[in-house]
Write a protein that binds this DNA or RNA. Structure first.
Lengths: 104, 104
DNA sequence: TAAATATATAATTGTATAGTTATATTTTGA
DNA sequence: TCAAAATATAACTATACAATTATATATTTA
């Protein structure tokens, strides 16, 4: 129970608090993908995807591996996927309310 | 595996993506507290705490119960606490990186 | 070596939202 | 019934950050 660095925890959550970043993470859920594949899957622009991936990599949520001119990214840790499915569980209960909430 | 509403999921995560809101949630971890207690525990301003609690309640993450002029709030669901500890687990591995990340 | 492809970065802009101050509303108790 | 206490809301400001456009930096292959 040493976990009390709220700023840090908030920062971690911010990593997940954006639809585009979630789309990027989801694009990686079955394994490594290069940037252009993620662009194809998500429909986001290339610079946008690159920025999000760099950001996620900076935070250790994804790992990258360069292969020629391609850069393959993958989820760094199963705990990341577990957090995502935990969120889905919560949504199955409060999804309606979250949807209707206009505050944030 | 019907969970693919990314905007909704991002919105949920945004609920956790703020140090003050996390402080408020943490103040409730051992049970119900009224607003002024949360103010005392967190050191945040009263309007600030009120706004965060309303917001969290709107999203179904906390529940409120009025008793006289006091309003008691509590965590709505154990899954919420589970998500928080899951985040701590991730931080135990990538906390360093998240800390150093300057992007978001 | 030049053109094409893949990725990253920079500059800019717009928007969302956290916090403050001030005030309103409700409830209790003297 | 009036003052005090508890909570909520409104208006405003400042800041963080997502997305776009444009460009730079590899890397491959023709």
């Amino acid at each position: 129970m040493q976990g009390d660095n709220l700023a840090l925890k908030a920062k971690l959550f911010r990593g997940f608090a954006d639809p585009s970043r979630l789309a990027v993470l989801e694009a990686l859920k079955d394994g490594a993908r290069c940037v252009s594949e993620v662009v194809g899957i998500t429909g986001l622009s290339q610079p946008n995807v690159s920025a999000h991936l760099s950001c996620l990599e900076d935070c250790g949520l994804v790992k990258k591996r360069k292969k020629g001119r391609y850069v393959y990214y993958q989820i760094a840790n199963k705990k990341v996927l577990r957090l995502l499915s935990q969120a889905e569980e919560i949504l199955s209960e409060v999804g309606e309310e979250v949807y209707k909430c206009t505050r944030y």
